[in-house]
Every structure is written in structure tokens, then in C-alpha cells.
């Protein structure tokens, strides 16, 4: 498929830096007057922003790098994002080639900026990239979609807390208290999901793209993704045919689509095997915009649990 070519995207990004970066830097300085002491945190996309706010509370101001609706996989940074990075105290991101542009920009930051690749945080064991049906797995590739596992989110929250405490030692106690509350929330979510998915007749989840590997791994499910690790890696005809065969053989009754992707592929598979389709949020975007006002990581993950419970025929 032809997409907007990379050079063009880069040109647009570069132009927007020229046009917008100056005023934005000025704005950033002006708005910082209110919270002079606040730690300026930049997070690469929504789940990390969520953690950054959860642990930081009022003591930090969090800026996201991925605009609502923009493809987080292979994101091209815009001027706003570059300006925010230049101004940051702490940068939180996911490495492992999830967003090469972010990794490049982070590498170019001055030594003084505290940066944390949450994928290499202790306790976040990475899984290899899932192989597409009938294909060899990519050598050395890891699956970046760790945020859909609440247990790994806990480990990442601890890494965020350490980073905050290092930059802002005076407020260390506050961060640790926030962390304890956050871990309690995530433990609660984990327990709920565990209960909902403990005894399901259906163990196969057919998903829009391979975002749910860690979720499946945590709760004993088998993911059959339609697109690959990136939603752009759409399947060829034979793979699509094999997916429908596997799904039919497994007796799949619900094909899951994502909040920010067109459901066309999911509809195609569902129509072929006579299944329903239902939403399973991959949380790559702020759910208060992508799903509904007031929604956050925890509420959306609970809703995911209920939809899985219904779609997988669980007791």
C-alpha cells in the first residue's frame, strides 16, 4: 500500500517546527509560571502519560508526544513534540523500535535530561514478537505492547517513581505514596481480569492487530492477530484465509476490533465465519478522546475485561 512517503512526512514535520516551535517554547515558559517547581515530564504516548500522571500527581506537568489519532507505531515527531522534548526534565518512552523517531530524538537530548526506556525497566520481561500465521517470527524483534498487562504496568510505575525521585528528591515521599496507590489500583485490575478470564470456553482472541500478546500471555489466552505488530502490516489474502480457517476451527464467536482503527478487516473475518464483532481497546490513544469523556486506562481495561468475558463465553 502506498502511504504518505516518509520524506514528505518529515518535510511537513520540519516545516511545522519552523512555524510553531518558536511560539510554543515561549508559551511553555509562560505557562510554567503557575507551577515553577513542577517537574516537566514528556511521555511518548497515552499509557505512559497515564502512568506519569498517576505517579506524579500535582508535582509534575505531563506532555504527550503522540497526537490523538496519529499512528503511534513509527510516529513522525512534529514541532510541538520537539519543543516539548527540548524543555523536558524527565522523558519516559518505550524503546525496542516501537517509535524509532522518538528514540532518535531522545538520543540527541543533552545529558542533563533524565530519560527512561520503560521497556528495559526491571520486572518488564519482554516477549518476542508474535509470528504471523504461517510465517517465521522476526529474529530479535520484541513485542512493545506491554501496557495491556496490568502486572507489567506496575513494574513500569515503579521505574517512573525512581526517575521522579532522582530528579526531584524533595518530593520523593509523595511519589512513593502515589506509587503505592497506583499499584493497589493495578493489582485490583489484575485480580478482576483474572477472575473474569479464569474459566472461558473460548481461549482464542482474534484481534485487529497484534497488540494483545501480553494480555493473552498473562491470562492464558491465545491471540490470533489479523494485522501484525503495526496495524499497517495488513495480511495478504492467504494469511487472511488462514486466519478465518483458524478462527472457524476454534469456534470463535466474536472478532475484536480496536477503537482507533477502521473495523474493515475485523468485519471481513467476522463475516466469513459468521461471528459478531466487538470493541477491544488497545489504548494507544487517550480514551477520553478516542472512546468517551471520563474514560481512562483503568476504566477501559475493566470494560475490555467485560467484553472479553462476554465474547469468550466465560463462566
Amino acid at each position: 500500500m502506498v502511504r504518505v512517503p516518509e520524506p514528505v512526512r518529515r518535510l511537513v514535520a520540519a516545516l511545522s517546527v519552523l512555524l510553531f516551535a518558536g511560539p510554543l517554547v515561549a508559551c511553555g515558559r509562560a505557562s510554567a509560571e503557575g507551577g515553577d517547581q513542577a517537574v516537566r515530564v514528556v511521555a511518548n504516548f497515552y499509557p505512559v502519560e497515564f502512568l506519569a500522571r498517576l505517579v506524579g500527581g500535582d508535582a509534575v506537568t505531563v506532555t504527550g508526544l503522540t497526537p490523538a489519532g496519529a499512528e503511534p507505531h513509527d510516529l513522525a515527531l512534529d514541532g510541538k513534540a520537539m519543543a516539548a522534548l527540548a524543555d523536558a526534565d524527565v522523558v519516559l518512552y518505550l524503546g525496542a523500535g516501537f517509535q524509532p523517531d522518538v528514540e532518535r530524538a531522545v538520543a540527541a537530548l543533552p545529558e542533563s535530561v533524565h530519560r527512561v526506556d520503560l521497556l528495559s525497566a526491571p520486572g518488564v520481561g519482554l516477549l518476542p514478537a508474535p509470528a504471523a500465521l504461517g510465517k517465521e517470527p522476526l529474529a530479535g524483534g520484541n513485542d512493545p505492547h506491554v501496557w495491556l498487562d496490568p502486572v507489567r504496568m506496575k513494574a513500569m510505575a515503579a521505574a517512573v517513581t525512581d526517575a521522579y525521585a532522582a530528579v526531584d528528591p524533595g518530593a520523593g515521599e509523595r511519589y512513593r505514596a502515589n506509587l503505592a496507590a497506583a499499584q493497589g489500583d493495578l493489582d485490583g485490575l489484575d485480580a478482576t481480569l483474572r477472575g473474569q478470564l479464569a474459566s472461558c470456553r473460548q481461549k482464542t482472541i482474534v484481534t485487529s492487530h497484534a497488540a494483545f500478546g501480553y494480555l493473552a500471555d498473562r491470562y492464558g489466552l491465545r491471540q490470533v492477530p489479523i494485522a501484525g505488530l503495526s496495524p499497517d502490516a495488513e495480511p495478504d489474502a492467504k494469511t487472511l484465509a488462514e486466519i478465518t480457517d483458524v478462527a472457524r476451527a476454534a469456534g470463535v464467536g466474536t472478532v475484536f476490533f480496536e477503537e482507533a482503527l477502521p473495523p474493515k478487516l475485523a468485519e471481513t473475518v467476522a463475516a466469513a465465519i459468521g461471528a459478531r464483532i466487538d470493541l477491544l481497546a488497545a489504548l494507544e490513544f487517550d480514551p477520553s478522546e478516542a472512546i468517551g469523556a471520563g474514560q481512562d486506562y483503568l476504566s477501559v481495561m475493566r470494560a475490555n475485561g467485560q467484553r472479553l468475558h462476554a465474547g469468550l463465553d466465560c463462566a
Binding site: V12, A70, E71, K264
Partner: peptide, 12 residues
């Protein structure tokens, strides 16, 4: 496409 609220969906 880049200023639309759903560029990801639009490109598809």
C-alpha cells in the same frame, strides 16, 4: 490528513 482528528483511520 495530519490535522484531521483520525489520521490513522483516514489513511486506511
Amino acid at each position: 490528513v495530519s490535522v484531521s482528528s483520525q489520521p490513522r483511520a483516514l489513511s486506511h
